[in-house]
Computed example of a mutant assay.
Amino acid sequence: MPETLFFVVEDHILHATQGLVTRAFTDELWNMALSKIIAVLRTHSSYCNDPDLVLELKNLIVIFADTLQGYGFSVNRLFDLLFEIRDQYNETLLKKWALVFREIFEQDNYSPIPVENEEEYKSVVSRFPFHDAEIEKQPFPKKLPMSQSVPQIYIQVKEFIYASLKFSESLHRSSTEIDDMLRKSANLLLTRTLSGCLQNLIKKPHIGLTELVQIIINTTHLEQACKYLEDFITNITNVSPETIHTTRLYGLSTFKDARHAAEGEIYTKLNQKIDEFIQLADYEWGMAESDGRASGYLMDLINFLRSTFQVFTHLPVRFALLNA
């Protein structure tokens, strides 16, 4: 940045000559220039939607600030600006990952993950912290209860945390402060971005009862994995495990809310389907006595309910709607 060279020269003149410039003059000149620099950076950074470009801007500001600080200029306002830009950076990351999550959900088949052998099983559990003693005892081939979107979502949450960490580096903050910033960013990803994607997914017309049941199972496993995300952040920030964190991950509420929404949607769709059977049926309600034959419509309804309740048996906990 040309401003760096200018003030380096000014500092050199200050120390190499006598009476030509004064510290008060250079400080006044620096404060005036700094105000204009911050105004320009704040304006242009607010229009940037590419997280990589925002990250490049941050790196340039850090180099500029560190250099000028080495020559005795006050750069606190620049680092305050970096925290403003960091919020902008996180917003661009959230928008980027919203698209990532939507694509994952669109490509999911909402069926349990099949594993043919030990190698495939290890491939899945290496990407997602899944442990189930009963399933581990089963012979191959076998199926894991969650669908393919679960390990993909878990990996992308970790990738988001890595991306968020890139901005926190070189900001001269302690590991505890960086850890807290990462947790706040992860909370926004879980409670706003991922939660919104899940709620939109559940309401999509093509998502049927089978898919909704699988979503309930998926969110149960993602909820259980939140403790591993907590440990992941602690490990990459090198914070002591004994540290009492001021910020916790809110993933539990995100996945519980999604699960409740899916359960409510199942109840709605189930009632709508039953109503459709009743409306289509041509029942003879005034029949004096039974002719010994069940209505074909009624048999279709019973078969539908039988197959639907069979799907519900895959739920990890007793489904409360069945008691309604």
Rank of each mutant, 00 (worst) to 15 (best):
I104S: 07
F79P: 04
E134G: 04
K158T: 03
K96G: 02
L81A: 04
Y162Q: 08
I63W: 00
L82K: 05
I113A: 07
R127E: 13
E91C: 07
E136Y: 08
E120I: 04
G72T: 05
E91N: 11
I85T: 06
P112A: 13
K95W: 04
F83A: 02
P145R: 12
I104H: 02
L78G: 00
R86Y: 13
I155S: 14
N109S: 10
L94H: 08
Q138M: 15
Q107C: 02
P139Y: 10
S123C: 11
L93C: 09
Y121I: 08
F105N: 03
Q69A: 04
F101A: 11
E84M: 04
F105Q: 07
I63T: 15
L78S: 01
I155F: 12
K95I: 05
E91R: 10
G72W: 05
P112I: 06
Y121K: 09
M146F: 15
L78Y: 00
W97M: 02
E159K: 14
F64E: 01
D66P: 00
F105K: 00
W97V: 00
Y121W: 14
P151K: 08
L82S: 04
M146P: 01
T67M: 00
L78M: 14
E136L: 12
Q88T: 09
I161Y: 04
I63K: 14
L99R: 12
F101S: 05
K158N: 03
Y110I: 05
T67S: 10
S126M: 08
P145L: 11
A98H: 11
N117D: 15
A65S: 15
S111F: 06
L99K: 14
E84K: 07
V62A: 09
V100P: 01
E84N: 05
V125I: 15
P114G: 11
A133R: 14
H131T: 12
Q88E: 13
Q156V: 01
P129I: 11
E136A: 15
L68D: 01
L78N: 00
R102E: 15
A133P: 02
E136I: 06
Q148C: 08
L144V: 07
P112L: 10
S123Q: 12
E159M: 09
Y89G: 07
I155H: 15
F79M: 02
Q69S: 13
G72S: 02
R127V: 04
L94D: 11
L82F: 05
V157N: 06
K122I: 08
P129T: 11
E120Y: 01
Y71N: 06
L78E: 03
F128V: 09
Q88D: 07
D80G: 00
L93I: 06
F128G: 09
V150D: 10
E120C: 02
N117Y: 03
Y89N: 08
L144Q: 13
K158W: 03
L99I: 10
Q148V: 14
A163C: 06
S74I: 03
K96E: 12
P145A: 13
H131E: 14
Y154H: 14
F83R: 12
F130L: 12
Q156E: 15
S147L: 08
S149P: 04
L81K: 01
S126H: 10
M146E: 11
Y162K: 14
G70M: 00
P112D: 09
E116H: 12
K158V: 02
I85L: 14
Q88V: 09
P114D: 13
V157K: 09
K122R: 14
F64V: 00
P114E: 08
R127Q: 15
N76G: 03
H131C: 07
Q148G: 06
L78F: 11
Y154C: 02
